[in-house]
Nucleic acid binder design. Structure first.
Length: 395
DNA sequence: AAAGATGATTGCGT
DNA sequence: ACGCAATCATCTTT
């Protein structure tokens, strides 16, 4: 009885999908928001329905076997009735024995089904409650995306799906190691906040991934970049800006640029560095780090790039007077995105290969995205007419 | 075992 | 509905 109740409650032995609490939850999820909850539970429900199906087929099989066996026994008894008289009571007894036997078998089936449901349920709850670290490959994929979209680390829904799929495919090890979109969202939320909170702690990682993506991009893009640089050394921006479809004429930003935008800049600077100087090994990452810290603390580290290109001049500016921050930063940010565009357009992002929509339109948004998120000023300057568009570099 | 890292959850604001 | 911030709970490292 208890087993029947439980199976009924779990929606296993119900008529169809109705009845149980699980079905009610499913209905609620479907009625309310079919976004994540249903997706989260879809696996669970799928397995539950699988169990239910097995249960029902087995039940049917047992019933059929029971009937067959009963008729078989009846036939035997009928044959025997020729030789000896058989009371109907005996037949009844026989049949009841058979039914009892099969009902005990059914009981076992119900019990095992119950166990399966319990195991499934506990594992489901465990998966929800207990934390399981992502695999190294999965975090690598996520990190690659994060650091290559550092100026706007907000993957679109499509990108999240893509990442989730990618991670799950790459993982393909444990049982419950499929990474969902919600988990990707969680990951990015955690990453953003923790990155912003303690940038220093993530510098090494940022450099690592910047270098990583740069290496992949460099191999394909090095020639193109060098070409563009040598072809137009006097007017480097003209060629590069042409690659940008729509560069919004950003005015001076009132708020200081977010810290991780600077970091992004740094990473890209490293990327450029790496692209320019192939001898630069990863071992000297510490060197780079000190340079970077000097950059931001204002100590005039007189580093001279082996081949300081056009776009890196602004870095030295930033180094010279780092305190003025915002306006220079805005200007630099656009250059950074310029560089990003150059890289992305010449070689394509390594993770955006194949034209999949990983590179969300937000990311293309010049220096908009992340900064506009803080100041969603939709062109504040039609009436204002900001005289100083970017006279900031001259201080 | 303590400390740090990390995925998940919750409460809040927009 | 989404993101942020704080927090929890667990896993991993020391």
């Amino acid at each position: 009885m208890r087993l029947d109740n439980m199976l009924l409650a779990e929606g296993v032995s119900g008529p169809e999908k109705g009845g149980g609490s699980a079905a009610a939850a499913a209905a609620a999820a479907a009625a309310g928001s079919p976004t994540d909850n249903s997706i989260e539970h879809s696996d669970y429900r799928a397995k539950l329905s699988q169990i239910r199906q097995i249960y029902h087929t087995e039940l049917e099989k047992y019933e059929q076997a029971c009937n067959e066996f009963t008729t078989h026994v009846m036939n035997l008894l009928r044959e025997q009735s020729r030789t000896r008289p058989i009371s109907p009571k005996e037949i009844e007894r026989m049949v009841s024995i058979i039914h009892r036997k099969f009902s005990s078998i059914q009981m076992q089936l119900k019990q095992s089904t119950c166990e399966a449901v319990m195991i499934l349920r506990s594992r489901f709850l465990d998966a929800r409650r207990k934390r399981r670290n992502f695999s190294k490959q999965a975090t690598e994929i996520l990190n690659e995306y994060f650091y290559s979209h550092l100026s706007n680390p907000y993957p679109s829904e499509e990108a999240k799906e893509e990442l989730a799929k990618k991670c799950s495919i790459t993982v393909s090890q444990g049982v419950g190691t499929t990474i969902t979109v919600a988990q990707v969202s969680n990951w990015f939320g955690n990453k953003r906040i923790r990155y912003k909170k303690n940038i220093g702690k993530f510098q090494e990682e940022a450099n690592l991934y910047a270098a990583k993506t740069a290496v992949t991009a460099a191999h394909a893009a090095a020639a193109a970049v060098q070409n563009s640089q040598t072809n137009s050394p006097t007017t480097p921006n003209s060629g590069k800006l042409a690659l940008i479809p729509d560069e919004p004429p950003k005015t001076n930003q009132p708020s200081p640029i977010p810290a991780w935008s600077l970091l992004n800049l740094c990473s890209l600077w490293h990327a450029g560095f790496q692209m320019k100087d192939e001898e630069f090994q990863l071992d000297s990452a510490e060197n780079k780090n000190t340079l970077l810290t000097n950059m931001f603390t204002g100590s005039s580290g007189s580093f001279n790039l082996p081949n300081s290109g056009d776009m890196f001049m602004s870095m030295q500016n930033l180094n010279g007077d780092s305190y003025q921050g915002a306006q220079v930063g805005a200007n630099v940010q656009s250059q950074v995105d310029t560089l990003r565009h150059v890289i992305s357009q010449t070689a394509g992002y390594n993770d955006a290969l194949g034209g999949n929509p990983m590179y969300s339109p937000h990311g293309l948004n010049g220096n908009g995205g992340w900064q506009d998120a803080t100041t969603p000023s939709s062109v504040i300057s039609p009436t204002e007419g900001p005289g100083s568009v970017h006279s900031d570099t001259s201080n």
